[in-house]
């Protein structure tokens, strides 16, 4: 993922609106061969989530256990670090989903 301070700042303003929203996990996979900058997190689950307000999102699951990996599991949107700092020492944050 390529980030710049301006891009992160612009995106961050929208991301905060999602914090605390709840929804359901529809489909999930476990990424075992990750892209650059995600290597230290792999393997990690990523899922498609339908929020209670109908919005569809894609995001990593956090604080999960094996039994959470099934369709229909309730999740809540949380703000978490996405990758390590970029070359300009800005930490990218994004929305991830925590099973409730």
């Amino acid at each position: 993922m390529i980030t710049t301070p301006v891009k992160l700042w612009r995106r961050g303003k929208k991301l905060v609106n999602h914090i605390g929203k709840t929804g359901k996990l529809l489909y999930w996979t476990i990424v075992r061969v990750p892209p650059k900058n995600f290597a230290d997190q792999a393997p990690y689950p990523v899922g498609i989530v339908r929020l209670d307000d109908g919005e569809m999102m894609v995001g990593q699951l956090v604080d999960w256990t094996e039994r959470d990996l099934k369709s229909g599991v309730k999740v809540v949107a949380v703000m978490r670090r996405v990758t390590h700092e970029d070359p300009e020492n800005i930490i990218p944050y994004g929305i991830k989903f925590k099973p409730v």
């Binding site: 993922m1 990523v46 894609v58 995001g59 996405v82 994004g94």
Partner: peptide, 10 residues
Amino acid sequence: EERGSGITFP
């Protein structure tokens, strides 16, 4: 959003 989630094409 997909890039930010760490997902790949597989």
